[in-house]
Design a protein around this nucleic acid. Structure first.
Lengths: 105, 105
DNA sequence: GCCATTTCATATACATTGTGTATGTAATGG
DNA sequence: CCATTACATACACAATGTATATGAAATGGC
């Protein structure tokens, strides 16, 4: 059980959650990644990944209160949980030790 | 064409090639990753990944001369090519910008 | 009040990566 | 020659990555 190696996109999503704090839901997570990774990201991709991370206990979610904004279905807010943060830290650490000493173009 | 987003393991493999220089073939790549990432890695996983990277033009390979060593089928040596190095650099850069400012456990 | 428009989530499907098990090939020392 | 060593390759399946399509809910203008 718990193969739980984080994939690259999972790393992105978890990182975005940390950056966003209390304001992390599908749309904002997607934008955060787009800004930082400089590429387009579909909201659905983000959601799929978030749900998978939730199944593993790496994130939790709650349905938000309706806002005064125009549209919508209720937002689902996500938060990173301790095991998720730990896995993320480990993933970055591993990447760093793989990178160590490399001279890249 | 060229979706070419590197996955995490592909990042590992390409990094190992750079670390190993002229001595990169299945077994050494596998060991290099095991040492740095501190986990077990099957040689077959490495080979599969290397062949896929070769198809994308990220690495090249050549069959080595038979050595004086005891066993074996001829080694297949791998080398990273410019597009691979470029993709790797980009992947690391992206990861860094995702990580930037995060406080991790 | 209705509906076009906006904002968001969910479902589903398929492509790509990740990774093991099983098998094959070749060399050599005894 | 054959057991052992050192490697590669084939294949299969699981996990991740990512898009298209659809549905739900709110609101403001008419």
């Amino acid at each position: 059980m718990a193969k739980t190696h984080l994939g690259e996109f999972e790393i992105f999503v978890l990182s975005a959650l940390l950056h966003l704090g209390d304001d992390a839901y599908g749309v904002t997570v997607s934008r955060e990644i787009e800004d930082r990774a400089e590429r387009t990201v579909s909201i659905a991709a983000v959601h799929t990944t978030l749900l998978r991370l939730e199944k593993k206990g790496f994130v939790s979610s709650r349905i938000g209160e309706p806002t005064a904004r125009r549209g919508g279905r209720a937002r689902r807010y996500f938060r990173i949980e301790a095991p998720g943060a730990k896995a993320l830290a480990k993933a970055y650490k591993t990447l760093e030790s793989m990178r160590e000493g490399l001279v890249l173009p």
